[in-house]
Amino acid sequence: MNASQTWVVVADAPAAAGLVEVARTLSTEVVAVAAGPRSVAEALAHVVDRVIWLGEPGDLPVEAFAPAVADLVAAAAPLAVVGATTPAGRALLGAVAARLQSPVVSGIGSVELSGGQVMVTRSVLGGVSEHRTALVGGTAVLAVDAGAEVGAEGSPVPVEDATVTPLTTARVLETKVKEHAGVDLGAARTVVSVGRGLKAQADVALVAELADAIGGELACSRPLAEGVDWIAKERYIGISGQHIAPDLYLAVGISGQLQHMVGVREAKVIVAINSDKAAPIFSQCDFGIVGDLYQVVPALTAALGAGA
């Protein structure tokens, strides 16, 4: 193993600040391999020590470069490989993990080097437990949040071209670009979130009015974003969605399943509105109103307006 290098594997987006930050904690040379347009490699060139670019993907999906990325990483046998928890990031990491026979470690809280060994804290099994784990015997493969776009502060290192052979079994025929909701729930102090207690899409307005009155952002549970599509996917909270830590989280018609609640564990105050007294959320909140959201939400909007 080459303990003096950490590799960052980047798919098709310049959002890689989170990866570089984690790689830097290991105090080694940081080598980035960029699968995707040259602009991604050029952005990375400002923040890493070496950057290797695999060529323009053209109409190939970035996942087609996964075996090539695995070849390059395996040849270098670095201390650690850091990639993103995005779909493409996991494809690159999956190929690397299979090549190195190393598990992809996720749910990471912190990373450190101790006695030459990579150690992480991570949450496991949907967040029910926190583990301190040593990665023993070979390269550590870490999946972390991609984070923001990398900044162009330092002077760039030259982009090194690598000639690789991607898989050619898929071609992108068309991409229907979707308007980005452009929300930053992470920055919101107050978040009002709604779940399957809502009966119709039109009723989202009711909850949005409450969010307005309280000066918060609107969010939801997963079924409302992926399932019925009533609210943008960028707005659902939980293990597969956003992790947030607002001062106030108001959950309306949300039962409080583990997979949802792990996304707001760090919230200061959690409020639940639910008609079922036995809903699990009532044992995980600071304040709750047991009642019908169709009555409670308008009353709460009015009470906030009156107090303002």
Binding site: L100, Q101, S102, G127, H131, T133
Partner: peptide, 14 residues
């Protein structure tokens, strides 16, 4: 066979 293995050193309730 596994190249890298995970060794749990400590556990805690969140």
């Amino acid at each position: 066979t596994a190249g890298t293995t995970l060794t749990t050193l400590a556990t805690a309730r969140p």
